[in-house]
Amino acid sequence: MNAREKILGRIRNAQARANGAAVAAIAPRTEAVASHLALHPRGPLPPHPDNLLARFKECALKLSSDVLETGDRKEVPTLLARYLNERNLPVSGVCWPSLAGLPWSAAGLDMQPRPAKNQDLVGVTGAFCAIAETGTLMLLSGTETPATTSLLPETHVAVLDPRRIVATMEDAWDLLRREYKQPPRAVNFISGPSRTADIEQTVTLGAHGPYRVLLILAPA
């Protein structure tokens, strides 16, 4: 008997004993599992916010993210250029291919549409959606949406359509189920710049991931 059979066998016998049965009745259990999976019921939820956008911004700021807004997506490079210049940050980096069409060079930026390498200091991504409850971004990995772009550079910039803000993570899962059959290799929820409190429980921003996260809200 291999380890799998031994472990599962021990569990099966223990559960049968606990239920006072000689052998575990398999059929009803399989059915219970299947029905819970089919229904995937939600647990207690926070009250729905009156204004998703306002709640999202409030929570994102609390997580030390920076937030900028524009009604015109073409303005995104200008906003980003100002943000980087104000902070004396490098003006070159990488972006997701879907954002390659924005007028980066007109704003004085050099954004290469390729996955991030270690040397890249600015990474611009989109987002699958965002969650108002916690001010969180939801990113899906993929060929056109590399996970490294939001991870390796010191500055992560996410361009987000405000209409893609949902109330809760539960809503985000439903959106994922509607638009994709199954989750991609990596679903990354990002809530502000990376941080550590390992030394004397003092929060320090910029651990192994970005030092800063800029959210630019702009309709697609």
């Binding site: 990995s141 060929t143 290799r185 990354n188 990376s194």
Partner: peptide, 24 residues
């Protein structure tokens, strides 16, 4: 755990990379 409403990263990892993916 730490008094945070959410951790900075929550990663849900499913399977290995697709052949065209650049990372994973």
């Amino acid at each position: 755990a730490t008094g945070q409403s959410i951790t900075n990263y929550v990663s849900v990892l499913t399977g290995n990379k697709n052949k065209d993916d650049h990372d994973g």
